[in-house]
Write a protein that binds this DNA or RNA. Structure first.
Length: 104
DNA sequence: ATCCTGACTGTTC
DNA sequence: AGAACAGCCAGGA
């Protein structure tokens, strides 16, 4: 993953359908780097560090446990799209998890 | 080139 | 179920 790895991450995230979520590790795997989950998070972190990319639905990216650790805004946005969180604050990946295909 | 940091993850207490 | 640990790798200083 050399230069431009951020762009590749953004392109995958942009493909996540509305109302679904994907995990960092899942996205990394799609990019061909099963161990690049952290880099995916790093790439998305760059968004809020001075990289305007309003088109990228960063809120649809959650951790491997279906938890939205980025504050209330992420959770609110997801709930607006129909994603339901359980009492533990986790989304059911089996139901809302994106399998990489636009149509389920 | 080297060191430090971090929107992660799986394993193990 | 929750917390600590250790790999992981790309950027920035």
């Amino acid at each position: 993953m050399g230069l431009g790895c951020h762009e590749r991450v953004y392109q995958v995230v942009e493909r996540i359908p509305r109302g679904r979520v994907a995990t960092y590790g899942q996205i990394a795997a799609m990019l061909g780097d099963p161990r690049g989950a952290r880099q995916v998070g790093y790439a998305l972190a760059a968004l809020g560090r001075g990289r305007p990319r309003p088109q990228v639905p960063w809120h649809r990216v959650v951790n491997a446990q279906g938890r939205a650790n980025l504050g209330q805004e992420q959770r609110m946005r997801l709930e607006t799209e129909g994603v339901v969180f359980d009492v533990a604050g986790r989304a059911d990946l089996g139901q809302y998890g994106w399998d990489g295909v636009d149509a389920r």
